[in-house]
Nucleic acid binder design. Sequence first.
DNA 1: GCTTATTTGCAAATAATTCGCATTTAGTAT
DNA 2: ATACTAAATGCGAATTATTTGCAAATAAGC
Lengths: 146, 146
Amino acid sequence: MKETCLVHTKVFQSALRGKKLKATPGRLAILDIFAHCNKPLSIKELKKMAGSAGPDIATLYRNAESLTAEGMLVKVNLGEKNSAYELASRKHHHHLICKTCGQVADVTISASPGLNQQALKAAKDFAAVSGHSLEFFGFCKKCVKK
Amino acid sequence: MKETCLVHTKVFQSALRGKKLKATPGRLAILDIFAHCNKPLSIKELKKMAGSAGPDIATLYRNAESLTAEGMLVKVNLGEKNSAYELASRKHHHHLICKTCGQVADVTISASPGLNQQALKAAKDFAAVSGHSLEFFGFCKKCVKK
DNA sequence: GCTTATTTGCAAATAATTCGCATTTAGTAT
DNA sequence: ATACTAAATGCGAATTATTTGCAAATAAGC
């Protein structure tokens, strides 16, 4: 198995038990990967990082979904066909994605919290706005030199 | 064939010729559908609306891509596995999607234009921000009554 | 009308995601 | 610690989404 961090593992175990989820190797593997990698990862990338001894890809799909349902992961939309995830425990932020190389940077937008109310006000058929997805696209300094 | 609008068709034909795209039935079918339906549509939905006499699904994929590359369509991310498109000629706006029934409402965010600069300032490795995707999630009035 | 580069339909190939089911296992009660 | 039960896992097969190859059709320009 990969070099998992015991401290993280303990924390994740309690967190999982606090929800209605069992602390299984499949879930701990996912959470451990994210604890060491602060960027959105697709299922395929998770599979690669977990290695051949890691959970089956079907298990990764199922756990990404259950962890998201319980609020431990958030689904991130990077404009790719396959969706990515990251740890929900991180503070609210958005992403800036390089259209050439795919590099992802975190960005914090000060106005972000107020956007939901603004959206609700603008849509008369809606009763509530619970969240948003805000992703930026552009070019990183490396790729713009072309 | 569906009741296409001659006026629209003329406009789209010129628009296509203005780009480097031929005004083919496949492309006109897509543009005509969007001219009558102001909401994001997936390829599957386009196929259904085009009907059995409409373009093959492979053609829809190829044309959605070429029209997007030429700036006549924009790809919209509604949090679904399959991506959707809408006419680029419409003024800049965002979407609010009901998490229960999938209904989509357009919303305009006043601060929206300034967000790109804010993102660029926050990401030191990036040289330019060319656009963003901002989608809201919530519950429509019909679905919240449960 | 003739020519040519594009586009199209169709079928087959990939890729992404989900499902069924027998087996294993985490959490709990004994 | 042992037994029990619902939940989780692996594996393969089934779906679903998207892309590709290629021969036939056709839009645009001459």
